[in-house]
């Protein structure tokens, strides 16, 4: 009863999160950029869980994260089927071709117009017109639709072709096989060998990547709500928690090293560690992308806005 209750509650929470992610994109600069990356990461993870039936064979993880995510998508599917007669089960084309692009067009145009004109009404009108044009052109995003990745045209794609069903599932299918191929070629032994040095490397990399990415996921989650003071407090708490957790992982890696070296403790006997290398490297890759994106946002937006603010006596804050 308790587990079912928790799963149902989490399903609804995840459903709200997924819907919110679909309909919100770049809303603010820098502070929310990290939250946005975390949301996108969670969204990609939830798509993989639902469409690829992901299971990690870790009881708590599967029960309280993967199962509610699957149920949330099932619930969304039921709602869409009974409301509009469309199904997303086994076919993510509705999400990728219609919902995300429409949300992206609306938010992108609204953001730039409220930034340029400082008038919410005008920004709202123009962004709604952009959505109408998007619908009238049968979901065509112009230049973005002509982007082709590996011979596959990515239709109905926001974010320059990155977040498309073809790209994500392509990466998901190809990345592990390419990684295993690279590993075999260079003879590192990340995927076959479970030697101590490799495990140490994986754990430390995991701690560093986790420090960057987990904070983003938490920032984009439901924990940050309420007024600005509460958000600031929440942000500080998240930073503290994440740094202590990744610190603990770091210490655990060193302790495991000593345990293996001096107390004849066999690290390979821990079953979870066998499958750790691939997810850690995947997350590390995403971390790299996120850090580069942060840097670009910092250069492109933050400096310009700071200049304008300084020129106008710091009176114009960045608006949502």
């Amino acid at each position: 009863m308790i587990i079912e209750t928790l799963i149902t509650v989490l399903s609804f929470v995840y459903l709200f999160m997924i819907v919110e992610i679909i309909f919100s994109s770049t809303k603010d600069v820098m502070t929310k950029q990290k939250a946005f990356e975390g949301r996108i990461l969670f969204f990609i993870y939830s798509l993989i869980v639902y469409y690829k039936d992901l299971k990690l064979d870790i009881f708590l993880w599967d029960t309280f994260l993967n199962e509610p995510i699957k149920q949330a998508y099932t619930l969304m599917n039921t709602l869409l089927e009974s409301f509009f007669g469309i199904s997303i089960a086994g076919n993510p084309i509705i999400i990728f071709a219609y919902l995300i692009p429409a949300g992206f067009v609306y938010n992108f145009v609204k953001y730039w117009f409220s930034y340029g004109f400082g008038d919410e009404k005008i920004a709202n009108m123009i962004s709604l017109t952009a959505v109408v044009m998007f619908i009238a052109k049968a979901g065509n995003l112009g230049l973005i639709n002509s982007i082709v990745i590996d011979g596959v045209p990515v239709s109905g794609v926001p974010f320059g072709g990155f977040l498309s069903s073809s790209t994500i599932f392509y990466l998901l299918d190809v990345f592990p096989s390419k990684f295993i191929g690279l590993d075999t070629f260079l003879n590192f032994g990340f995927t076959s060998d479970i030697s101590l040095s490799i495990l140490m490397f994986v754990l430390i990399l995991g701690a560093i990547a986790g420090f960057f990415m987990i904070s983003r996921i938490l920032l984009g989650s439901v924990f940050l709500s309420g007024d600005d003071t509460k958000k600031e407090k929440g942000e500080r708490r998240i930073k503290k928690t994440v740094s202590s957790v990744s610190g603990l992982v770091f210490v655990a890696a060193i302790l495991l090293y000593f345990a293996d070296k001096f107390f004849s403790f066999d690290l390979a006997s821990i079953p979870i560690l066998h499958g750790l290398a691939l997810p850690v490297f995947f997350i590390a890759g995403l971390t790299l992308i996120a850090v580069v994106a942060d840097f670009l946002v910092f250069v492109a937006f933050w400096m310009i806005i700071k200049d304008i603010n300084a020129a106008t006596g710091n009176r114009l804050d960045i608006k949502k």
Partner: peptide, 28 residues
């Protein structure tokens, strides 16, 4: 909007918006 969404006009759009920001700050 068509020009902005589909082509080089995107850069013009961004530059125009930045200019509008400065103008609206000044007139404000």
């Amino acid at each position: 909007l068509n020009v902005m969404i589909s082509g080089v006009g995107f850069i013009i759009f961004i530059v125009f918006m930045l200019a509008m920001r400065i103008i609206s700050a000044y007139t404000g």
